[in-house]
Amino acid sequence: MMKSTLAALLLALATSAGEATDAGSFTLLDRHTARAVTAPRSDARPTVVALWASDCAYCKQNLHTLATLAKTNPQLRIVTVAAELPTADTRPAIDKTGVKGERLAYGDDVPEALAYAIDPNWRGELPRTYLFDGKGGMQARSGVIDAAGFKAALGLR
């Protein structure tokens, strides 16, 4: 059981990584993979899932803050989700913020279905951030979060 579980997870991760696009190293989501983005996380690391778009200036503030926090908090896992099908502009937009970590983006599935799969309670406002504290807790927040806000929610330094 354990062996097959591990094999399935490995295969799934390898598959999702294989769907990176020309427009940058984004793994594209469909409505099924999108459900995992905000699903409960089991690992003990604090994790931030940050939804953003290239047209959203407030999103870049959050990404920049996260990039700074990551320097002093190597245990912090950052997953970014571009709520748009990536174009040539998408990767430079996120590179400029300095944020690293796993980069996901909307694929060509129906955007309304992707948004619903990520979070049926999210109404499309950006930035939208999911904060996993690594102890089983999760908060969903809309809007700009300052460094103190991230630190408090995630137990960071």
Partner: peptide, 22 residues
């Protein structure tokens, strides 16, 4: 797995679905 096998299995279904859907 080290953190929690049970929890890891809870993470699985979406990824498995993802693979099927792909």
């Amino acid at each position: 797995l080290g953190a929690s096998l049970i929890a890891a299995m809870m993470v699985l279904p979406p990824y498995t679905l993802a693979h099927d859907a792909a």
